[in-house]
Design a binder for these strands. Structure first.
Lengths: 237, 237
DNA sequence: TCATTCAATATATCTAAACATATTTACAAG
DNA sequence: CTTGTAAATATGTTTAGATATATTGAATGA
């Protein structure tokens, strides 16, 4: 009855989750159907209700089950697929490829936030910002073009930083933990400037990653990263 | 001391997680530093150890904490940022926008798998495949161009399906549970054909989503979805 | 008919306690 | 100095029981 997993036994909640997954996969429990309640499953699997709860919670997080108080637990009709991407620190990403990392700043300008920052992100137009444009290289080849706005009011100790020589991304990762973030992947045709900086041709399709991070004082930074042509983001799920 | 959250109280574990997050964000607990153990935190927060455990588990899943038995819990040094994307069923995505969904198949051809499938995915060249090309529309406007290969040997009951009239994506979602999947976002310039089918101009940058799913019998399906110009994938994290 | 109230019920969450397990640390033996 | 062993300790997991909360569905009354 019980299966052996290579490398030892799994926790009970895991085994229960696997069995429920199997029942859904084999359509023993069909889409939209209500499954037995936690108490019954606890009896069936010889576990405590809390353990069953944990297992079902996992499957609900995966999007396979839908749980509502009083109404019970049912198999989701059209399970949405989820994929988690890890957004690495550029330096690490490049060094993992066995390439040497370098970084060059093309623009540093202090001043009020750009229009997009004010209108899209609801930042006061009077906030003190730095606008940065830089390129990250692997073995001397352009890897990413970074266009970043930084809110100097969001993190103490930034006023006197020399962003011309400090890697803003890494400084922020280490010194400005965020509470909330959003991210967006899109595709854009390279502008003439991007093409030049990335060693590409104008109009080439670039994967663009836009990310905003926030802490309790408001927006920390808003960055738009245009990746070199052909670059892609991969994930398992 | 305690903060009010608009809209009611949160579960205790959530409040604890938020407070820990805050302490990390404010560098009260610095990167690499060990934080108090569960028992101490339980006392401090007036909660049971299990509740603290749950809260810390969440933060560890988020990649903010690193936990090891006996060694304790510490703040991760260079937190990798993660973003989870939900890949919705196209029909639902379009209907959620308040548009009417339609779908048109342009190509259905049975035969051996394409070269890319054989070489990149290690599928035997003799496997029975169907190659599909279709466009999904919202209110009559092209939304996505789908280019899909389906391994007929991977799922029983597919040999006699009429993919000309059945929505392959939805049939597979409902009938072919996968064990493993990978996904990739990239940017590509629209080919003439894609431009025509998507009502775009050749060369426009398109966000492309490539996805392969597998079960115990091997590859189920490999699909490449070119989204209409300007489309983007968003996530919070 | 429709809205309100109220009891029943399934999940959500928490607690306290126990045992399991991995890992560190110290110490002893070779 | 290395290896082996044992104690200590922090997290991992489960249990049994309790309370909280949302939702259903039936009963009630305007």
């Amino acid at each position: 009855m019980t299966e052996y997993l290579p490398g030892g036994t799994s926790p009970k909640a895991q085994l229960i989750a696997d069995e429920v997954r199997r029942r859904i996969a084999t359509q023993q429990w069909q889409q939209g159907q209500r499954i037995p309640d936690e108490a019954d499953l606890a009896v069936e699997f010889g576990a405590a209700r809390a353990t069953v709860n944990k297992a079902l919670q996992v499957l609900a997080d995966e999007g396979l089950l839908e749980r509502k108080r009083r109404a019970g637990t049912r198999v989701v009709v059209n399970p949405a697929r989820k994929a988690t991407f890890t957004i690495p620190i550029i330096r690490e990403q490049i060094e993992k490829l066995g390439q040497s990392y370098s970084y060059r700043v093309f623009t540093v300008r202090r001043g009020p936030p750009g229009n997009r920052i004010v209108t899209d992100l609801g930042v006061p137009a009077s906030a003190p910002f730095v606008h940065l444009q830089a390129v990250h290289y692997g073995d001397g080849q352009p890897f990413q073009f970074e266009d970043r706005w930084i809110n100097l009011a969001a993190v103490a100790g930034m006023e006197n930083l020399d962003f011309k020589h400090i890697n803003a991304n890494e400084w922020l990762v280490r010194n400005a933990q965020y509470l909330r973030a959003d991210i967006e992947f899109s595709a854009e045709n390279a502008t003439a400037r991007e093409a030049q900086l990335l060693g590409a041709t104008a109009g080439m399709a670039l994967l663009v990653l836009s990310r905003n991070t926030w802490n309790d004082k408001g927006l920390i930074t808003s960055v738009r990263i245009a990746c070199r042509p052909g670059f892609s983001m991969k994930a398992l799920d």
